[in-house]
Design a protein around this nucleic acid. Structure first.
Lengths: 182, 182
DNA sequence: TGACTTATATATCAGACTGATATATAATGA
DNA sequence: TCATTATATATCAGTCTGATATATAAGTCA
Protein backbone atom coordinates (compact mmCIF):
# COMPACT_ATOMS: atom_id res chain seq x y z
CA UNK A 1 0.00 0.00 0.00
CA UNK A 2 1.02 3.62 -0.68
CA UNK A 3 3.56 2.23 -3.14
CA UNK A 4 1.31 2.56 -6.14
CA UNK A 5 3.27 3.03 -9.34
CA UNK A 6 2.14 6.27 -10.95
CA UNK A 7 2.03 4.75 -14.44
CA UNK A 8 -0.46 2.11 -13.23
CA UNK A 9 -2.69 4.77 -11.69
CA UNK A 10 -2.73 7.04 -14.78
CA UNK A 11 -3.54 4.11 -17.06
CA UNK A 12 -6.31 2.86 -14.77
CA UNK A 13 -7.65 6.41 -14.59
CA UNK A 14 -7.81 6.66 -18.38
CA UNK A 15 -9.34 3.18 -18.62
CA UNK A 16 -11.97 4.23 -16.05
CA UNK A 17 -13.26 6.66 -18.71
CA UNK A 18 -13.22 4.22 -21.66
CA UNK A 19 -11.48 1.12 -22.98
CA UNK A 20 -8.29 1.93 -24.85
CA UNK A 21 -5.25 0.52 -26.66
CA UNK A 22 -1.69 1.32 -25.57
CA UNK A 23 -1.33 3.60 -28.55
CA UNK A 24 -4.50 5.51 -27.64
CA UNK A 25 -3.28 5.86 -24.05
CA UNK A 26 -0.09 7.44 -25.35
CA UNK A 27 -2.18 9.84 -27.45
CA UNK A 28 -4.20 10.91 -24.38
CA UNK A 29 -0.89 11.56 -22.59
CA UNK A 30 0.36 13.72 -25.46
CA UNK A 31 -2.80 15.79 -25.80
CA UNK A 32 -5.16 15.86 -22.82
CA UNK A 33 -2.75 15.12 -19.97
CA UNK A 34 0.26 16.81 -21.58
CA UNK A 35 -0.02 19.96 -19.44
CA UNK A 36 0.43 18.20 -16.13
CA UNK A 37 1.60 14.62 -16.79
CA UNK A 38 3.50 12.52 -19.33
CA UNK A 39 4.50 8.92 -20.01
CA UNK A 40 6.45 7.02 -22.67
CA UNK A 41 5.71 3.82 -24.57
CA UNK A 42 8.51 2.24 -22.59
CA UNK A 43 6.41 2.50 -19.44
CA UNK A 44 2.91 2.14 -20.94
CA UNK A 45 3.22 -1.24 -22.68
CA UNK A 46 4.95 -3.13 -19.83
CA UNK A 47 2.48 -1.58 -17.34
CA UNK A 48 -0.50 -2.78 -19.40
CA UNK A 49 0.80 -6.38 -19.41
CA UNK A 50 1.41 -6.13 -15.69
CA UNK A 51 -2.10 -4.77 -14.99
CA UNK A 52 -3.58 -7.75 -16.84
CA UNK A 53 -1.38 -10.19 -14.86
CA UNK A 54 -2.58 -8.63 -11.61
CA UNK A 55 -6.22 -8.78 -12.67
CA UNK A 56 -6.67 -4.99 -12.70
CA UNK A 57 -7.42 -4.90 -16.45
CA UNK A 58 -8.35 -7.34 -19.20
CA UNK A 59 -6.98 -7.54 -22.74
CA UNK A 60 -8.77 -8.50 -25.94
CA UNK A 61 -7.93 -8.39 -29.64
CA UNK A 62 -9.91 -6.16 -31.96
CA UNK A 63 -11.20 -8.44 -34.72
CA UNK A 64 -13.07 -5.74 -36.67
CA UNK A 65 -9.83 -3.90 -37.24
CA UNK A 66 -7.24 -5.18 -39.70
CA UNK A 67 -4.35 -4.23 -37.41
CA UNK A 68 -3.58 -6.35 -34.37
CA UNK A 69 -5.00 -3.83 -31.93
CA UNK A 70 -5.02 -4.86 -28.27
CA UNK A 71 -7.89 -3.27 -26.37
CA UNK A 72 -7.63 -2.95 -22.58
CA UNK A 73 -10.60 -2.72 -20.20
CA UNK A 74 -10.57 -1.90 -16.48
CA UNK A 75 -11.89 -4.59 -14.08
CA UNK A 76 -13.73 -4.07 -10.78
CA UNK A 77 -10.44 -4.80 -9.03
CA UNK A 78 -8.76 -2.15 -11.16
CA UNK A 79 -11.44 0.40 -10.30
CA UNK A 80 -11.05 -0.36 -6.59
CA UNK A 81 -7.28 0.01 -6.87
CA UNK A 82 -7.73 3.38 -8.61
CA UNK A 83 -10.24 4.60 -6.03
CA UNK A 84 -7.95 3.61 -3.17
CA UNK A 85 -5.06 5.53 -4.73
CA UNK A 86 -7.28 8.58 -5.21
CA UNK A 87 -8.03 8.68 -1.46
CA UNK A 88 -4.32 8.87 -0.60
CA UNK A 89 -2.80 12.35 -0.22
CA UNK A 90 -0.74 13.69 -3.13
CA UNK A 91 2.91 12.70 -2.75
CA UNK A 92 4.60 15.09 -5.14
CA UNK A 93 3.90 18.07 -7.39
CA UNK A 94 6.99 18.73 -9.39
CA UNK A 95 8.08 21.42 -11.84
CA UNK A 96 11.23 20.70 -13.83
CA UNK A 97 11.96 23.62 -16.12
CA UNK A 98 15.27 23.46 -17.93
CA UNK A 99 14.65 27.05 -19.07
CA UNK A 100 14.81 28.27 -15.47
CA UNK A 101 17.89 26.15 -14.84
CA UNK A 102 19.73 27.74 -17.77
CA UNK A 103 18.51 31.15 -16.65
CA UNK A 104 19.81 30.51 -13.14
CA UNK A 105 23.30 29.97 -14.58
CA UNK A 106 22.99 33.17 -16.61
CA UNK A 107 26.34 34.58 -15.49
CA UNK A 108 28.11 31.92 -17.55
CA UNK A 109 26.35 33.22 -20.70
CA UNK A 110 26.07 36.55 -22.50
CA UNK A 111 22.84 38.51 -22.19
CA UNK A 112 21.76 37.72 -25.76
CA UNK A 113 21.91 34.00 -25.08
CA UNK A 114 19.92 34.31 -21.86
CA UNK A 115 17.32 36.43 -23.67
CA UNK A 116 17.05 33.83 -26.43
CA UNK A 117 16.23 31.08 -23.92
CA UNK A 118 13.44 33.26 -22.52
CA UNK A 119 12.15 34.09 -26.02
CA UNK A 120 12.04 30.43 -27.04
CA UNK A 121 10.14 29.62 -23.84
CA UNK A 122 7.72 32.45 -24.63
CA UNK A 123 7.14 31.19 -28.17
CA UNK A 124 6.54 27.65 -27.00
CA UNK A 125 3.91 28.86 -24.52
CA UNK A 126 2.23 31.12 -27.09
CA UNK A 127 1.96 28.19 -29.48
CA UNK A 128 0.09 26.11 -26.89
CA UNK A 129 -2.44 28.81 -25.94
CA UNK A 130 -4.83 28.38 -28.93
CA UNK A 131 -5.23 24.68 -28.13
CA UNK A 132 -6.03 25.41 -24.50
CA UNK A 133 -8.46 28.17 -25.47
CA UNK A 134 -10.18 25.80 -27.91
CA UNK A 135 -10.46 23.10 -25.27
CA UNK A 136 -11.88 25.63 -22.77
CA UNK A 137 -14.59 26.70 -25.23
CA UNK A 138 -15.58 23.17 -26.20
CA UNK A 139 -15.69 21.98 -22.59
CA UNK A 140 -17.75 24.96 -21.40
CA UNK A 141 -20.24 24.31 -24.20
CA UNK A 142 -20.74 20.65 -23.38
CA UNK A 143 -20.10 20.69 -19.65
CA UNK A 144 -23.12 18.54 -18.81
CA UNK A 145 -22.60 15.90 -21.53
CA UNK A 146 -20.17 13.96 -19.34
CA UNK A 147 -19.47 14.17 -15.59
CA UNK A 148 -15.73 14.00 -16.36
CA UNK A 149 -15.86 17.25 -18.35
CA UNK A 150 -15.88 19.56 -15.36
CA UNK A 151 -12.65 18.04 -14.06
CA UNK A 152 -11.08 18.19 -17.47
CA UNK A 153 -12.11 21.87 -17.69
CA UNK A 154 -10.45 22.64 -14.34
CA UNK A 155 -7.11 21.26 -15.56
CA UNK A 156 -7.49 23.37 -18.73
CA UNK A 157 -8.17 26.56 -16.75
CA UNK A 158 -5.13 25.75 -14.61
CA UNK A 159 -3.03 25.55 -17.77
CA UNK A 160 -4.50 28.74 -19.22
CA UNK A 161 -3.98 30.80 -16.06
CA UNK A 162 -0.43 29.64 -15.52
CA UNK A 163 0.53 30.05 -19.19
CA UNK A 164 -0.75 33.62 -19.17
CA UNK A 165 1.29 34.26 -16.04
CA UNK A 166 4.37 32.78 -17.74
CA UNK A 167 3.92 35.24 -20.63
CA UNK A 168 3.67 38.17 -18.19
CA UNK A 169 6.82 36.97 -16.47
CA UNK A 170 8.65 36.66 -19.81
CA UNK A 171 7.89 40.31 -20.59
CA UNK A 172 9.09 41.43 -17.15
CA UNK A 173 12.19 39.25 -17.28
CA UNK A 174 13.24 40.53 -20.71
CA UNK A 175 12.69 44.13 -19.62
CA UNK A 176 14.61 43.57 -16.37
CA UNK A 177 17.57 41.98 -18.16
CA UNK A 178 17.77 44.72 -20.78
CA UNK A 179 17.81 47.37 -18.03
CA UNK A 180 20.25 45.46 -15.81
CA UNK A 181 22.50 43.85 -18.45
CA UNK A 182 26.24 44.08 -17.92
CA UNK B 1 27.23 16.16 -28.00
CA UNK B 2 23.69 17.17 -27.08
CA UNK B 3 23.62 14.13 -24.80
CA UNK B 4 24.65 16.03 -21.69
CA UNK B 5 23.31 14.42 -18.53
CA UNK B 6 21.24 17.00 -16.68
CA UNK B 7 22.70 16.08 -13.30
CA UNK B 8 26.22 16.84 -14.59
CA UNK B 9 25.10 20.23 -15.88
CA UNK B 10 23.33 21.30 -12.66
CA UNK B 11 26.31 20.26 -10.55
CA UNK B 12 28.77 22.07 -12.81
CA UNK B 13 26.48 25.11 -12.73
CA UNK B 14 26.49 25.16 -8.94
CA UNK B 15 30.26 24.57 -8.87
CA UNK B 16 30.69 27.51 -11.26
CA UNK B 17 29.43 29.73 -8.42
CA UNK B 18 31.56 28.22 -5.64
CA UNK B 19 33.27 25.00 -4.56
CA UNK B 20 30.95 22.63 -2.75
CA UNK B 21 30.58 19.21 -1.13
CA UNK B 22 27.97 16.70 -2.30
CA UNK B 23 25.95 17.43 0.81
CA UNK B 24 26.00 21.17 0.13
CA UNK B 25 24.94 20.55 -3.48
CA UNK B 26 21.92 18.63 -2.18
CA UNK B 27 21.09 21.55 0.14
CA UNK B 28 21.17 24.00 -2.79
CA UNK B 29 18.78 21.66 -4.65
CA UNK B 30 16.39 21.58 -1.70
CA UNK B 31 16.34 25.33 -1.12
CA UNK B 32 17.46 27.54 -4.01
CA UNK B 33 16.69 25.28 -6.99
CA UNK B 34 13.71 23.55 -5.37
CA UNK B 35 11.12 25.60 -7.28
CA UNK B 36 12.25 24.49 -10.73
CA UNK B 37 14.67 21.54 -10.32
CA UNK B 38 15.51 18.67 -7.99
CA UNK B 39 18.04 15.86 -7.55
CA UNK B 40 18.69 13.04 -5.11
CA UNK B 41 21.87 11.85 -3.37
CA UNK B 42 21.63 8.76 -5.54
CA UNK B 43 22.42 10.87 -8.59
CA UNK B 44 24.65 13.54 -7.01
CA UNK B 45 27.41 11.37 -5.50
CA UNK B 46 27.96 9.08 -8.50
CA UNK B 47 27.88 12.13 -10.82
CA UNK B 48 30.56 13.88 -8.74
CA UNK B 49 32.91 10.87 -8.99
CA UNK B 50 32.23 10.72 -12.70
CA UNK B 51 32.94 14.43 -13.20
CA UNK B 52 36.32 13.98 -11.49
CA UNK B 53 37.13 10.95 -13.68
CA UNK B 54 36.34 12.99 -16.79
CA UNK B 55 38.47 15.92 -15.62
CA UNK B 56 35.52 18.31 -15.35
CA UNK B 57 35.95 18.77 -11.59
CA UNK B 58 38.62 18.09 -8.95
CA UNK B 59 38.18 16.60 -5.50
CA UNK B 60 40.05 17.40 -2.29
CA UNK B 61 39.63 16.54 1.37
CA UNK B 62 38.90 19.26 3.87
CA UNK B 63 41.60 18.98 6.52
CA UNK B 64 40.39 21.88 8.70
CA UNK B 65 37.14 20.06 9.29
CA UNK B 66 36.95 17.04 11.55
CA UNK B 67 34.50 15.27 9.24
CA UNK B 68 35.77 13.68 6.07
CA UNK B 69 34.32 16.35 3.83
CA UNK B 70 35.05 16.04 0.11
CA UNK B 71 35.18 19.43 -1.58
CA UNK B 72 34.65 19.62 -5.34
CA UNK B 73 35.96 22.38 -7.62
CA UNK B 74 35.12 23.03 -11.27
CA UNK B 75 38.02 22.84 -13.79
CA UNK B 76 38.45 24.88 -16.99
CA UNK B 77 37.24 21.81 -18.88
CA UNK B 78 34.18 21.69 -16.65
CA UNK B 79 33.44 25.36 -17.25
CA UNK B 80 33.73 24.83 -21.01
CA UNK B 81 31.40 21.85 -20.85
CA UNK B 82 28.87 23.91 -18.88
CA UNK B 83 29.12 26.84 -21.31
CA UNK B 84 28.60 24.55 -24.28
CA UNK B 85 25.49 23.05 -22.69
CA UNK B 86 24.12 26.53 -21.96
CA UNK B 87 24.31 27.44 -25.67
CA UNK B 88 22.13 24.45 -26.64
CA UNK B 89 18.37 25.06 -26.85
CA UNK B 90 16.24 23.87 -23.94
CA UNK B 91 15.10 20.27 -24.50
CA UNK B 92 12.26 19.99 -22.01
CA UNK B 93 10.21 22.04 -19.56
CA UNK B 94 8.06 19.66 -17.62
CA UNK B 95 5.31 20.02 -15.07
CA UNK B 96 4.29 16.87 -13.22
CA UNK B 97 1.50 17.65 -10.79
CA UNK B 98 -0.08 14.67 -9.10
CA UNK B 99 -2.73 17.04 -7.72
CA UNK B 100 -3.97 17.78 -11.25
CA UNK B 101 -3.85 14.09 -12.12
CA UNK B 102 -6.09 13.21 -9.16
CA UNK B 103 -8.35 16.13 -10.03
CA UNK B 104 -8.63 14.89 -13.62
CA UNK B 105 -9.99 11.59 -12.34
CA UNK B 106 -12.46 13.43 -10.10
CA UNK B 107 -15.49 11.43 -11.25
CA UNK B 108 -14.11 8.38 -9.41
CA UNK B 109 -14.17 10.36 -6.14
CA UNK B 110 -16.76 12.27 -4.14
CA UNK B 111 -16.70 16.06 -4.20
CA UNK B 112 -15.34 16.33 -0.65
CA UNK B 113 -12.31 14.24 -1.56
CA UNK B 114 -11.59 16.30 -4.69
CA UNK B 115 -11.92 19.50 -2.66
CA UNK B 116 -9.52 18.17 -0.05
CA UNK B 117 -6.82 17.55 -2.70
CA UNK B 118 -7.22 21.17 -3.86
CA UNK B 119 -7.12 22.46 -0.28
CA UNK B 120 -3.93 20.54 0.53
CA UNK B 121 -2.33 21.92 -2.65
CA UNK B 122 -3.39 25.43 -1.61
CA UNK B 123 -1.89 25.01 1.87
CA UNK B 124 1.38 23.70 0.50
CA UNK B 125 1.69 26.72 -1.81
CA UNK B 126 0.77 29.19 0.95
CA UNK B 127 3.46 27.70 3.18
CA UNK B 128 6.12 28.33 0.52
CA UNK B 129 5.19 31.96 -0.17
CA UNK B 130 6.94 33.55 2.87
CA UNK B 131 10.23 31.98 1.86
CA UNK B 132 9.93 33.26 -1.71
CA UNK B 133 8.94 36.75 -0.48
CA UNK B 134 11.95 36.77 1.85
CA UNK B 135 14.28 35.73 -0.93
CA UNK B 136 12.83 38.41 -3.21
CA UNK B 137 13.46 41.13 -0.61
CA UNK B 138 17.01 40.03 0.18
CA UNK B 139 17.94 39.71 -3.51
CA UNK B 140 16.49 43.10 -4.44
CA UNK B 141 18.47 44.69 -1.58
CA UNK B 142 21.79 43.19 -2.63
CA UNK B 143 21.29 42.91 -6.37
CA UNK B 144 24.71 44.36 -7.23
CA UNK B 145 26.73 42.34 -4.71
CA UNK B 146 26.99 39.41 -7.09
CA UNK B 147 26.33 39.14 -10.84
CA UNK B 148 24.48 35.85 -10.22
CA UNK B 149 21.87 37.57 -8.02
CA UNK B 150 19.83 38.99 -10.87
CA UNK B 151 19.35 35.54 -12.37
CA UNK B 152 18.49 34.10 -9.00
CA UNK B 153 15.94 36.92 -8.53
CA UNK B 154 14.30 36.13 -11.87
CA UNK B 155 13.70 32.51 -10.85
CA UNK B 156 12.25 33.76 -7.54
CA UNK B 157 9.85 36.16 -9.30
CA UNK B 158 8.83 33.29 -11.58
CA UNK B 159 7.98 31.22 -8.51
CA UNK B 160 6.12 34.07 -6.81
CA UNK B 161 4.00 34.93 -9.85
CA UNK B 162 3.06 31.33 -10.59
CA UNK B 163 2.32 30.52 -6.94
CA UNK B 164 -0.01 33.53 -6.69
CA UNK B 165 -1.74 32.34 -9.85
CA UNK B 166 -2.08 28.85 -8.35
CA UNK B 167 -3.83 30.35 -5.31
CA UNK B 168 -6.25 32.29 -7.55
CA UNK B 169 -6.99 29.08 -9.45
CA UNK B 170 -7.60 27.19 -6.19
CA UNK B 171 -10.25 29.72 -5.17
CA UNK B 172 -11.94 29.53 -8.57
CA UNK B 173 -11.76 25.73 -8.68
CA UNK B 174 -13.29 25.31 -5.20
CA UNK B 175 -16.08 27.77 -6.06
CA UNK B 176 -16.74 26.05 -9.40
CA UNK B 177 -16.94 22.60 -7.82
CA UNK B 178 -19.26 23.73 -5.04
CA UNK B 179 -21.60 25.29 -7.61
CA UNK B 180 -21.39 22.35 -10.02
CA UNK B 181 -21.16 19.44 -7.58
CA UNK B 182 -23.36 16.40 -8.22
C1' DT C 1 28.06 14.32 32.69
C1' DG C 2 25.34 11.45 30.26
C1' DA C 3 21.48 10.47 27.19
C1' DC C 4 19.01 11.76 23.35
C1' DT C 5 18.02 14.03 19.12
C1' DT C 6 19.14 16.49 15.09
C1' DA C 7 22.36 17.96 11.48
C1' DT C 8 26.25 16.84 8.74
C1' DA C 9 28.40 13.77 5.46
C1' DT C 10 29.09 9.95 2.04
C1' DA C 11 27.63 5.92 -0.38
C1' DT C 12 24.88 2.25 -2.64
C1' DC C 13 20.98 -0.08 -4.97
C1' DA C 14 16.45 -1.91 -6.48
C1' DG C 15 13.15 -0.34 -9.14
C1' DA C 16 10.73 3.35 -12.09
C1' DC C 17 10.75 5.77 -16.17
C1' DT C 18 12.63 8.03 -20.48
C1' DG C 19 14.23 8.34 -25.11
C1' DA C 20 15.69 5.77 -28.71
C1' DT C 21 15.13 2.17 -31.61
C1' DA C 22 13.04 -1.80 -34.11
C1' DT C 23 9.36 -3.73 -36.66
C1' DA C 24 5.23 -3.96 -39.37
C1' DT C 25 0.90 -2.59 -41.49
C1' DA C 26 -2.75 0.79 -43.19
C1' DA C 27 -3.98 5.09 -45.03
C1' DT C 28 -3.03 9.21 -47.55
C1' DG C 29 -1.58 11.74 -51.37
C1' DA C 30 0.93 13.21 -55.39
C1' DT D 1 3.00 3.46 -58.14
C1' DC D 2 5.82 5.13 -54.85
C1' DA D 3 6.75 7.80 -50.85
C1' DT D 4 5.26 9.50 -46.68
C1' DT D 5 2.64 9.67 -42.60
C1' DA D 6 -0.22 7.51 -39.03
C1' DT D 7 -1.25 3.49 -36.52
C1' DA D 8 0.29 -0.15 -33.48
C1' DT D 9 3.25 -2.98 -30.31
C1' DA D 10 7.52 -4.03 -28.10
C1' DT D 11 12.18 -3.80 -25.98
C1' DC D 12 16.33 -1.88 -23.70
C1' DA D 13 20.37 0.88 -22.24
C1' DG D 14 20.91 4.35 -19.45
C1' DT D 15 19.11 8.06 -16.04
C1' DC D 16 17.26 9.17 -11.82
C1' DT D 17 14.51 8.51 -7.46
C1' DG D 18 13.52 7.00 -2.87
C1' DA D 19 15.03 4.19 0.50
C1' DT D 20 18.44 2.57 3.23
C1' DA D 21 22.99 2.10 5.57
C1' DT D 22 26.70 4.02 8.15
C1' DA D 23 29.20 7.24 10.96
C1' DT D 24 30.39 11.48 13.30
C1' DA D 25 29.53 16.25 15.26
C1' DA D 26 26.68 19.45 17.43
C1' DG D 27 22.96 20.85 20.08
C1' DT D 28 19.57 20.07 24.03
C1' DC D 29 17.77 18.99 28.29
C1' DA D 30 18.02 17.13 32.85
Amino acid sequence: MANEKKIDCVILGLLSHEELTGYEIKKRMDTTLKYFWSASYGSIYPALSDLVNRGLATKREDKENKRNKLIYTITDGGRNYLKKWLTLPVEKDELRYETLLKLFFGNEQDIEQVLSHIKLFEEKIKKELPYLLGAEKVLKDCLDDDIAHKYYLLTVTFGLKTYRTYLEWCEEAKKFLMENGE
